[in-house]
Simulated assay, not measured.
Amino acid sequence: MSASATAALGDLPLDQVRTLLAVVDEGTFDAAAAALHVTPSAVSQRVKALEQRTGRVLLLRTKPVRPTPSGAVLVRLARQVAWLARDAHAELGLSGAGEPVHVSVAVNADSLATWFLGALTRVPRDPPLCFELRREDEDHTAALLREGVVMAAVTSSPDAVPGCSVRPLGRMRYLPVAAPEFAARYLDGPLHRALAEAPVVVFDRRDDFQDGFVRRLGGGHGSASPVRHYVPTSEGFVEAVAAGLGWGMVPEPQAEPLLRSGRLTEPSPGTAVDVPLYWQQWKLDSPALATVAEAVGAAAARALRA
């Protein structure tokens, strides 16, 4: 943890910060009170006292409760304190030592389907770790770090989230591919126009990767066809393209065996897109988090392009 964060913590009552975290995690003041074994009135008073102390509104009183940007800073701080406390207990051999350490990581679906799980299998088993993986697009994983939901993430941003360190992992290469029958039917002609009119497979409604590829071919103009199929899993996405539902941008490790077998074809060789990936994690002196980072970096070096 940074010196500034430690200093800030010294100015804030720990019971109030932990109560704020409980409200966010449990979703309501009543549920947080039950988790903390105090009354809802005590929870409300602690949160109000913390808001008065910081001079900021920290929570949006919605259902479920959500932190404001200022509240997210303190939520992240509270999670870091809890993580360090668990590490300290384990090192001192106090009660609870030997219990698994929970490591929460945000990772994009394509990394999860191709190389990331292999990294976790190489993490030492002592001390025992439990992984909680949050699947999110690489353009949005940094938001989970910023909110304190996860302690590490595979992101596409080289800009470190406050309180985090960042290191490059490598580049994931994507190939524009389609089933041979689909390509013969829809992609015969100028590629930019064909891709803009042919049915397309996309991951979800936030996925603009295929649109961006069409704009790239067209010098910044155009987008993929409005005839689009939403397939929100990496494996399902590849199968949808191979089945001929539409064309799509498929990670090289998934595309190559299907290209070799003839189930997929690449209508525009030489137009692959490389997406740089980065590992961001909390700045904590934690042996457990360090071993995870080392394993992820080694696996990425083997699986991704430099």
Rank of each mutant, 00 (worst) to 15 (best):
S2M: 08
S2T: 15
S2F: 07
A3L: 14
S4T: 13
A5H: 00
L12Y: 02
P13Y: 02
L14G: 05
Q16K: 07
V17C: 07
L21I: 01
E26S: 12
G27R: 00
D30H: 06
A33M: 08
V38L: 09
T39Y: 07
S41L: 14
A42F: 02
V43W: 12
R46V: 09
R46N: 04
K48Y: 11
A49L: 04
R53M: 09
R56S: 09
L60Y: 14
T62H: 01
P67E: 04
A72R: 03
L77F: 10
R79N: 03
Q80H: 02
W83Q: 06
R86A: 14
L92T: 14
G98Q: 07
V101T: 12
H102I: 09
H102A: 08
V105N: 03
A106R: 05
V107C: 15
N108R: 02
N108C: 11
T114F: 05
R122K: 13
V123L: 06
P124W: 11
P124L: 13
P124K: 13
P124T: 15
D126Q: 14
P127N: 02
F131Y: 10
R135F: 00
D137G: 06
T141V: 00
G148H: 09
A152D: 03
T155N: 07
T155H: 11
S157R: 12
P158M: 04
P158R: 03
D159L: 12
P162E: 14
P168T: 06
R171T: 03
P180V: 05
F182I: 03
A183K: 10
R185H: 13
L187Y: 07
G189N: 01
G189Q: 00
H192W: 15
L195G: 06
V200S: 08
V202E: 11
D204E: 12
R206H: 15
D208V: 11
F209P: 05
V214Y: 06
L217H: 01
G219Q: 05
S223M: 13
A224R: 06
S225V: 04
V227I: 05
H229C: 11
Y230Q: 15
V231H: 08
P232C: 10
T233K: 05
S234R: 01
F237W: 08
V241E: 11
G246N: 09
M249V: 05
P251H: 04
P253T: 07
P253E: 03
P257D: 11
P257V: 04
G262L: 14
V275Q: 13
V275A: 03
L277H: 15
Y278Q: 06
W279G: 09
D285E: 15
P287F: 01
A295E: 07
G297P: 01
A298C: 03
A298D: 12
A299S: 15
A299N: 05
A303N: 00
